[in-house]
Amino acid sequence: MKAVCVSNFNYYDRRIKYMQAYLESKDYEVHYITGDYDTMNRQMYTLTLPRVIQLPLIQYKKNISFERIYSHYHFAKAMYEQLLKLKPDVIYAMVPPNFVSYFIRKYKKKYPKTIILFDVFDMWPETYPLPTKPLLRLPFKLWQHLRTKSLNYADAVLSECQMFEHHLKSLQSHQRIHTLYPCQLSSHHHIDYTEKDNKWSVCYLGSINNIIDIEHIYRLLGEMAKIKPVHLHIIGNGEKIEEFIQKMQTICVAVRHHGNVYCDEEKQHIFNQCAFGINVLKSSVFIGLTLKTIDYLKGGLPLLNTVQGDTKHMVETHQIGINVCQLDTLANTLSSLTPENIMTMKKQSRYVFEQYFSEDNYMKQLDMLLTQMGVQL
């Protein structure tokens, strides 16, 4: 039996490799179709994985551009041609790009016995702040419809969070949509925290781009600075990194930019110096869970959070940080915290990671959800 996994953005380590392991446990020969260009770091890459097919991607610089749309279309069409050659029994595809779902829908019509699994890991265009004028919103609505209609042809649809699941079900009566949280390998690195020099040490992890709320982060750190000085650690880069650093330097006593950090041990060393991880996006962004959230929790770092849906609920239910959409009462909340309170939240954060986002939980949930949706592999 043959299966194909598809990811335009090469999310192999984030999602694909776990699905591949699951399919291989069911005796499938798994092929992987992806691109050859890292859109985050703007550079070419080559994979050495077995049975991988890297399709040449048309490069683009802006996330909202005709070049990006055409690049996605070009990849999806080339993917379709590869599927016609491979003739798989199972196709697992990460969406977006929405064109991927369109061409797999086309393949399903041609080969209706093929089992189709869509994994919606982002909501485009919903995640992007939409224009206010109805006419300008029309292309985004058409883009959304392209994905939504295609999902009806799937045997099962997995969503990255419950917020996405509820939204997709509101757009159509497709009942085979269930949440399967992303996972990572468990961490065995020690969690620690010692307050130094009577300062707040906080971390921002991830890309500095157009969906994070720089102004809200600035005001958030300003409220913290009313209690004691703030030392900000930044792990990551992005198109707005210079603007971000310059603005935060006006409110923080120190800003340290670590750049991209891929070593878990090095990342844990930074997390252990910090009391909180900043998880702040613009209120217009439609998302219930970020990958940086999972990174923070894996590292035992409580959240300063504005992300709605699943993340907001977890913060409230499991005491793994503070929801900071409203900053009026933040100073009072923070001033009552002791280092012991923070250490308790750190341990609870790691516990929540193991309960929801570990590889073991992923495999158990995947097996259960496919059974519930009547999919037999």
Rank of each mutant, 00 (worst) to 15 (best):
N279M: 08
F103A: 06
A154N: 01
T371D: 12
H190A: 11
P139L: 09
V202L: 10
H166A: 13
H269R: 13
F118Y: 15
Y22M: 05
F99Q: 06
H258Q: 07
E165W: 06
R14A: 08
P182W: 10
L369P: 00
L334R: 07
K108V: 02
L55C: 03
K106P: 01
T338A: 03
L57Q: 14
T194N: 14
L281N: 07
I104H: 02
R137M: 14
M19L: 13
V253G: 02
K149A: 05
V230T: 01
D27S: 15
T344K: 12
A275G: 07
P182Q: 05
I278R: 06
T34K: 03
L180C: 02
V255H: 06
S201E: 14
V100L: 04
K196M: 13
L136H: 11
S170T: 09
D310I: 04
A93W: 04
L221S: 08
C161S: 10
L117I: 09
N237F: 02
Q348D: 07
K364N: 12
P139H: 10
L330F: 07
K108I: 00
A254W: 09
L301G: 08
L370Y: 11
R256K: 15
F118P: 04
C183W: 01
L281V: 15
L55Y: 10
S336K: 12
Y32V: 01
L303M: 02
Y22C: 04
T148M: 12
C252Q: 05
P182S: 03
G259Y: 10
I217F: 14
L289S: 03
S186W: 02
P131N: 03
I33L: 06
D264Y: 12
S25Y: 06
S201Q: 15
S170D: 10
G259Q: 01
I294W: 00
L281T: 01
L142R: 06
E24Q: 12
H313A: 15
H145S: 12
I91P: 01
H31K: 13
D328P: 00
H258I: 03
Y18K: 10
S71N: 09
T317Q: 15
V253T: 09
P96R: 05
F244N: 09
Y128W: 14
T371G: 00
C325T: 11
T179A: 13
H269P: 00
A331H: 08
G277L: 05
N63S: 13
N209L: 10
K267S: 07
I16Q: 05
S65D: 11
P125S: 10
Y107G: 00
F244H: 06
Q365H: 11
Y18E: 03
H190C: 04
E67G: 04
L117F: 04
H166V: 07
M163D: 08
L158S: 08
L83Q: 00
K282R: 14
P131E: 08
P131L: 09
K347D: 07
V255A: 07
S150Q: 04
